[in-house]
């Protein structure tokens, strides 16, 4: 009987706390989700910022590696020029058989 009384009290206590636990669990879950959404939102904004930065950097790289610009720098500052083709001889490279490699040409959608 004593055992039953105690058991009943525990069950009563659990039943009393259960709604609170459930409510708080739901609130905790939802707030966690919201916190995650905030983080993801921030990451998304960061991603956009990085993409923009990337395109700025690509633009700068493209400008700096312009063949014209490089040629002007090479010829005027370093004194380089096109090869004198009358003073060049060519070395032919005969490549040995190579193992099969995956081709990037088969990427068609």
């Amino acid at each position: 009987m004593i055992h039953n009384r105690r058991g009943g009290a525990v069950i009563k206590l659990i039943l009393f706390l259960l709604p609170f636990v459930l409510v708080f669990s739901i609130i905790w879950l939802r707030s966690s989700i919201t916190a995650l959404e905030y983080q993801l939102g921030q990451l998304q904004l960061q991603k956009i910022r990085l993409i923009n930065e990337k395109s700025e950097l690509i633009a700068k790289r493209a400008e700096l590696t312009s063949v014209r610009k490089v040629e002007v720098l090479a010829s005027k500052r370093i004194g380089l020029g096109y090869t004198d083709r009358t003073r060049v001889f060519y070395v032919k490279e005969v490549a040995p058989p190579v193992p099969y490699t995956a081709s990037l040409n088969n990427q068609e959608r």
């Binding site: 001889f89 070395v91 032919k92 490279e93 005969v94 490549a95 040995p96």
Partner: peptide, 9 residues
Amino acid sequence: NILVVSRGI
């Protein structure tokens, strides 16, 4: 005839 170099040889 020009210089012929095989890779690895």
